[in-house]
């Protein structure tokens, strides 16, 4: 018996936590490590990635019946590259300092496996409604991941959050956290925490209920 395809609500919810692109699938790690020294660039990256993901998912879903299996990756890449270019030019026009700060990481969204995997897994097989729900859910999951890493790094490394000073200037900060090694330390620790919480939840769920025997 064929397994039924997930509903739009299931796709939306799965993208946020159960199939979180960073903490569960380990996808999109390049921007997660590279632009999370502070919240502002991290959230700009999330916005650009969400725009590309939503547009790519919708387009591939609309043309899913025309896709040939051996040419589908080419279509996905063409679609993603187009919307990444639009996002890059829009940032350069309306948020020039942020565009300079993010540098090559916006064009590098093209090779973000998180986006191509959603085209492959969901939008090339399901309706535009489901594809949209999936893209929004995964974008929220990506936001959660980048926001958590950036929060840890900016607070520990700069004593601020979104540029707002949270601790007194005299308070010692860990400069290492806003440098590249800090990205690995923060992501590694948070990944460990997420995995531990996942295992604990699974273990609790599988425990026999007291008194049920």
């Amino acid at each position: 018996m064929p397994v039924p395809e997930p509903t739009p609500l299931e796709r939306f919810l799965n993208g946020i936590l159960p199939e979180n692109p960073v903490y569960r699938q380990l996808l999109g790690l390049c921007p997660t490590l590279a632009v999370t020294a502070a919240m502002k660039p991290a959230m700009t990256m999330v916005g650009a990635t969400a725009f590309v993901l939503i547009c790519a998912n919708l387009i591939t879903s609309l043309i899913r019946h025309l896709l040939k299996p051996h040419l589908r990756i080419l279509v996905f890449t063409l679609t993603i590259a187009t919307f990444v270019t639009i996002a890059d030019r829009t940032l350069a026009a309306f948020a020039y300092p942020m565009s300079k700060l993010l540098g090559p990481y916006v064009p590098l969204i093209i090779v973000n496996c998180m986006i191509i995997s959603r085209c492959e897994v969901c939008s090339s097989k399901q309706s535009p409604k489901t594809a949209l729900a999936d893209a929004v859910g995964v974008s929220l999951g990506f936001l959660l991941a980048l926001a958590s890493v950036a929060t840890v790094r900016e607070i520990l490394g700069n004593g601020s959050w979104f540029g707002i000073q949270l601790v007194p200037e005299s308070f010692p900060t860990l400069i290492l956290m806003i440098l590249p090694p800090g990205a690995f330390l923060a992501l590694g620790s948070l990944l460990g925490l997420a995995t531990w919480l996942g295992h604990r939840r699974k273990a609790r769920a599988s425990e026999p209920h007291a008194g049920s025997a």
């Binding site: 043309i63 025309l66 040939k68 040419l71 080419l74 279509v75 063409l78 679609t79 187009t82």
Partner: peptide, 12 residues
């Protein structure tokens, strides 16, 4: 085989 890619390339 490639008409869809050509069409998309033109539109994009």
């Amino acid at each position: 085989q490639g008409w869809l890619i050509l069409l998309l390339a033109g539109a994009f």
